[in-house]
Structures are given as C-alpha cells and as structure tokens.
Design a protein around this nucleic acid. Structure first.
Lengths: 188, 188
DNA sequence: CCGATTACAAACCGACTGTCGGTCTACGAA
DNA sequence: TTCGTAGACCGACAGTCGGTTTGTAATCGG
C-alpha cells in the first residue's frame, strides 16, 4: 500500500486546491462539480470515489482552511505570556487573516448555510473558537458562567469586523476599534 | 386597474407566505421552486411573472421578514426614554425574536450566502442594524470614530447569542450574559 | 501468481431552474 | 358597445447539475 495510496492522496490534494479556489471565487452555489472536473482533468467517477459529494468536498476544503488558520494564529501568539496580550495578538492576527477572500467567503459566509449552523459551530469549536475561548479564560476577566457565551459573542464581533475590513474598510481603524472593544470587555 | 392588481397582489402574498415557510423549514438550497409551485397550485409561468427567479423570491421573503422584525422591535422599545435602557430592551427583544426558526434560518444563516454578503449588509442597514446604531449613538458611550464598527460588532455578538439560544441554549443565562456584555461596553 | 482492492473512466438518470410562445380576461379609450 | 392593450397565468421545453452505475486497468497482499 504505497504507490496507490500516494496517487490517491495526490489526487485528493489536487482536487482540494482547485475546489478551494473555485469555492472562494464563486461561492458554493455557483461552483459546479462539472467545473472542478474540467479544471482537474478528472472524471466524475474518480471525484466521487474520493469525496462523497459536493458537500463533502466543501467540508474537506473548509477543514483544510480552518487548519491552516489555526497554525497561523498559533504562530502569531507564540511566545506571548501575558494572557490579555496573547488574546489581543490572536484577535488581530485573525482579523488580518480574514481579509483573505478565501477565508472570508468559505469560512465566514458559505460554511454556516452549506454545512448547517450546528455542524459549522462544532468545527469552529475545534479551531478558532476553541483557541479564543481558552485565551479568554486565561485572562480571568470573564465570570465563568458567562465564559462560553462571551467567547462566542466576542468571536462573532471580531469576525464581523474582519468582514468589514475585507469589504474595503480601513484596516487601522478597524484594528483600533477591535482593541478598544476588547479592552472594554476585559476591564470593566 | 383594480381587480387585476388585487389578484396579482394576492398571488404574490400567497407565494410569499408559502415560500417563507419552505425556506425556513428546509433552507434555501433544499427548497425547490417546484415545491413552491405545487403547494401554491400556481404554474411556473405565473411565478416567474411575479418574481424574476429563485433568488428574487428569497429576497422578497427576506425583505418581508426584516420588515416585520423592525416593527416588533420598535414596539418593544416604544416609550422608553433612557437611551441605554432602550438599547437593552431592543437587544433583548431581538434575541427573543431570533429564537423563531424562520428568522434564524432565513435572516441569519441563509441570507448572507444567498444574497451575497454586501447586499445582505445593505439590507440590514435599513432594518435591525440601523436601529441598533441609532440607539447606540444616543447613549453617547461610544467614541464617534468607533460608532459604526462597534455597532456592527455588537449586532454580530447579539446575533450569535440569539443563534445559541435558538440552538437550545438557556434563555435566561443568555440574556444575562448579553446584558453583562452590553454593560461592559457602555460603562468602560 | 491470483483474488481482492483501489483509482479512475464514461454513459446515464432524475431533478431542477429558467425560458418562451401562447391564452384569457379585465380595463379603458374610441 | 366595441376593440386594442396590458397584465395574470399556463405548460411544454431546453439546458445544467448532482449523483449513480457499470466497466476497466493497475496495484497490492498473500
């Protein structure tokens, strides 16, 4: 089990990167499997052998994207010991990442409606949300009974400002606004 | 021009209410025009005479829903003179409304991906977001340069907690968490 | 060396969206 | 009253898309 497995993995990677680009450019609905087939030179049978369907393909794309995001944010907070500072650094890093159209369209706009909100949330829990909640807990600024909810609300707020920046808003102002927002939440 | 216009308006209303139910129950993707046709007893030609297509139909449903929300929130804050209290009342009212599956699915989950985030935002501006921003401004608690961004972030945060409640979270805890969140933002 | 498994191919199916020519009827002007 | 027009509505049809099924060649494990 080597040559075959490698070939399969290579095919999956290829399809994944093409699908990522298409989903980001046109959105889920306006991306047809047909187009993925044409651009990859693959046959229907091959694609459906590797991915159960269009939704499964999207989910794989999302998973890969979220994973990449997690790595980059971990890098951004690496070495910062003060919890509040780490939280701030992570949030700013996330905003900058979310400026990427790929992340904007796939993770923030299409994912909830394609995967269903429940499953999207479950995935977020394993990535950005999980990190943010942990960081927020370390600051000790939020009462335990509100930790989960406030973490959700904070992430949603940060995501929103990331979307605004991606839409063409001013980077610097947005980051200042987010820092102010965060400061108010942490220092009541 | 009376009988004809009335008949047309009645047909549009009928289609609209059926489409609203279907979109809320199954989501945009899994709702077929065919089903709307069957349930309304209308022909394809008739439907496409009134609505340019599936997206246009969804947009009409969304517009009607947002409008209804606006009315209810206005009722909830009616008579409250203190800006901070009015803001709090409006936010709590919105959370309770968003518990409605129709609003949850159509307004919060499907709308951004179906209409595109830009056009969805433009519509929100005319309804819930516009109201919240106005209320937030009246409190005077937010620096003018951050008003727009903080209003967005706050709305996103509130929407998120509404979604959590709709998913089955605890109503009372969520509302308490939101009040605490709001309090921290307004009293730095 | 051989059966089993895997990667891939291609024809095909059912469902769906949107179009198009046409019918009917209310309406207003001649 | 008559008649042309415009709006409401109809239904067949084309094109596309997601997914299935059947078939083939190559590789793997024993």
């Amino acid at each position: 089990m080597n040559l075959k497995a490698e070939r399969g993995a290579a095919t999956r990677d290829k399809v994944l990167s093409i699908a990522t680009r298409l989903f980001a450019d046109r959105g889920y609905d306006d991306t047809s499997i047909e187009t993925v087939l044409q651009e990859s030179g693959l046959s229907r049978g091959a694609l459906y052998h590797h991915y159960a369907g269009k939704e499964a393909l999207f989910e794989a794309v999302l998973e890969a994207t979220e994973s990449a995001i997690g790595v980059k944010i971990a890098q951004a907070v690496q070495g910062i010991t003060d919890p509040a500072a780490a939280l701030r650094a992570g949030v700013i890093a996330w905003i900058r990442l979310a400026g990427d159209p790929v992340i904007k369209r796939i993770v923030l706009i299409d994912a909830p409606s394609v995967m269903g909100w429940e499953r999207w949330r479950a995935m977020e829990e394993r990535y950005s949300f999980g990190m943010l909640k942990g960081a927020l807990e370390l600051t000790g600024a939020v009462p335990p009974e509100f930790l989960d909810l406030h973490a959700h609300m904070l992430l949603a707020a940060v995501n929103e400002s990331a979307l605004l920046v991606a839409r063409g808003g001013d980077h610097a102002t947005a980051e200042a606004a987010v820092e102010e927002f965060l400061h108010r939440l942490l220092h009541p």
